[in-house]
Amino acid sequence: MLDSVASIFLSGRNMSRLMEGLAVTLEISVISVVLSMLLGIFVGLAMTSRNRLVLAGTRIYLEIIRVMPILVLLFLFYYSLSKIWGINLSAMSVAILVFTLWGTAEMADLVRGAITSMPRHQRESGRAIGLTESQINRYIIIPQAVRRLLPGVINLTTRMIKTTPFVFFINVPDLVKVGQQIVEITGMRNAMASFWVYGLIFLIYFIICYPISCFSVYLERKWES
């Protein structure tokens, strides 16, 4: 059995190709997560605005993104919108664009939730003891909002990582696509290839996501007490 496993991963450039695929997966994840966090804060702040037009706009954006499966969005942007708008985006850019659009919407909703769930007396007490508005934000509102936000943000991060296999459908050479190619080639002489390769990819995703999930649980427990 060990021989068969070794022959799959050690033959040719199989292992280094898988690692290249993993790098693509991680690149898409990291860029989209970072962009989503930054943009999400701004959109989230906009969602707490009193301007009805801004509220309606952000609400519609959030609902559309929420209802559509990410895969449909990928198809839409890759096969149609780039043609309609006449922009030629690479599959990789489309992937990052779609994940960022989705992540921003989810992040914005988390930010909105963290801000609106803040009791009003926090700000009022700050005023009562004579803090300026920026001091109130700096020392009272933001630290508490970050605590409320973090577990959700970490959760969103793992969700985004777990959604990256979808880029397979628009032919980005990610971990899954490379894995499939290896299975196709190696599978002809080694029937167990699909078992070991997909098994390894399964394990890689688990090894990436599990510690992140644990961190979120740890933070929640720590801040609860």
């Binding site: 078992f195 098994g199 995703y205 688990f206």
Partner: peptide
């Protein structure tokens, strides 16, 4: 933990293409 920390797509690949081999 296993089900929540892995993508459905990989689970399906493994179930459909991997497990037939065993």
């Amino acid at each position: 933990e296993l089900s929540r920390n892995t993508p459905l797509m990989i689970q399906l690949f493994f179930l459909y293409y991997g497990l037939t081999r065993v």
